[in-house]
């Protein structure tokens, strides 16, 4: 980790009876893309807003660029860019006017400002939409405008708060590319999301949080190496009887089996290449399947092992919960 850019120590933030952040600490170094991963309501945005001094907090200490962050820390604020979760632009202004206006809050020199605005428009690929008002843009283009307004003044530290929510895959990829590009140009990035794939894709260091607490921290590989899951074997198979699920759970190295929507997910520990033994079992027992493949563990598996729930659980409808069985637990108990 490079020179410390953000330091948060023992942060406590309460909303009346609810404790949103409970002794939360983190440290972000210069040049990092720091991913803050957690389900909805885990405290990611609260953390970000406290760091930015938008939210008051009850206890703890926050330092940015080595200085205490307060609402009046204008010198620090000059070096920060923010891309909020929702689109934060003026609907009455065009794309160019919006970017120009927010740049103008930081950059005084007219020539420099013009250059920065052109660069930001070019950077997010909105050159053809300069004269468009936000209402005429698609969701993905609005997101790009949101990003342009946050990074136009070339900040050293940029906060992205779930910038890809409700964005099409093409725009999403463009946004992620932009973030990596900004980092390569020297910006330190703090990226909050509940999409583990994005974090794995771009972040150099990740903190997993839930219920206002940091659960684990490290690179994606470090986090995955800390869990017992070494491989997931996925089998697309129709109408698998419950007793077969129980039998598969007793196979060597299998410690958890989940059957949902005609998909069997078998979690294995203690090495890879478990697919062979599972294939043998399916053929011996004459179980017809459509497809079988193997996956390495993801951050979702890390989160699952730490919290007992999946990152995506918070977004699921109750009737979509899987039939999940674990070795060593009472059979038939749903553990979703």
């Amino acid at each position: 980790m490079g020179e410390e850019v953000i330091s948060v120590k023992n942060l406590i933030k309460r909303y009346k009876e609810l404790t949103a952040l409970n002794g939360f600490s983190l440290s972000v170094g210069q040049g990092e893309i720091f991913g803050l991963l957690g389900p909805n309501g885990s405290g990611k945005s609260t953390t970000m807003n406290c760091i930015l001094s938008l939210l008051r907090y009850d206890e703890g200490e926050i330092r940015v660029f080595g200085e205490k962050m307060t609402p009046e820390s204008y010198e620090i604020k000059k070096r920060i860019g923010v891309v909020p979760q929702d689109i934060a632009v003026f609907d009455e202004l065009t794309v160019q006017e919006n970017i120009d206006y927010f740049c103008g809050l930081y950059v005084k020199d007219a020539e420099t400002k013009k250059q920065y605005v052109d660069e930001a428009i070019d950077f997010v690929g909105l050159d053809a939409f300069r004269k468009f008002k936000p209402g005429k843009l698609s969701g993905g283009l609005k997101r790009r405008l949101n990003i342009a307004c946050g990074i136009v003044h070339k900040p050293e530290l940029i906060f992205f708060d779930e910038p890809t929510v409700a964005v099409d895959p093409q725009s999403r990829n463009k946004i992620l590319e932009n973030i990596v590009d900004l980092n390569k140009r020297g910006a330190t990035i703090v990226y909050t999301t509940h999409y583990m794939e994005e974090v794995e894709q771009i972040c150099t260091r990740i903190m997993i949080m839930d219920k206002g607490k940091a659960l684990a921290e490290g690179t994606a590989e470090e986090l995955k190496s800390r869990i017992k899951n070494t491989e997931n074997v996925i089998v697309d198979i129709r109408k698998l009887p419950a007793e077969e699920v129980d039998k598969i759970l007793k196979l060597p190295r299998v410690y958890e089996v989940e059957y949902r929507a005609d998909r069997l997910t078998i979690r294995c520990a203690g090495g890879k290449q478990n697919i062979v033994s599972i294939l043998d079992y399916l053929e011996v027992n004459n179980l017809k399947y459509q497809r079988i493949y193997s996956e390495l563990p993801t951050l979702n598996d890390v989160f699952l092992e730490i919290t007992g729930k999946e990152l995506r659980d918070t977004e699921e409808a109750p009737d979509e919960r899987p039939n999940k069985k674990k070795a060593g637990k009472k059979r038939g108990k749903e553990d979703a």
Binding site: I87, A88, F102, L105
Partner: peptide, 16 residues
């Protein structure tokens, strides 16, 4: 106002 309008966050965070 950042607690009412999203664009207020940008204004609150401006060095001004």
């Amino acid at each position: 106002a950042a607690n009412i309008e999203e664009v207020g966050k940008r204004i609150e965070l401006a060095p001004y």
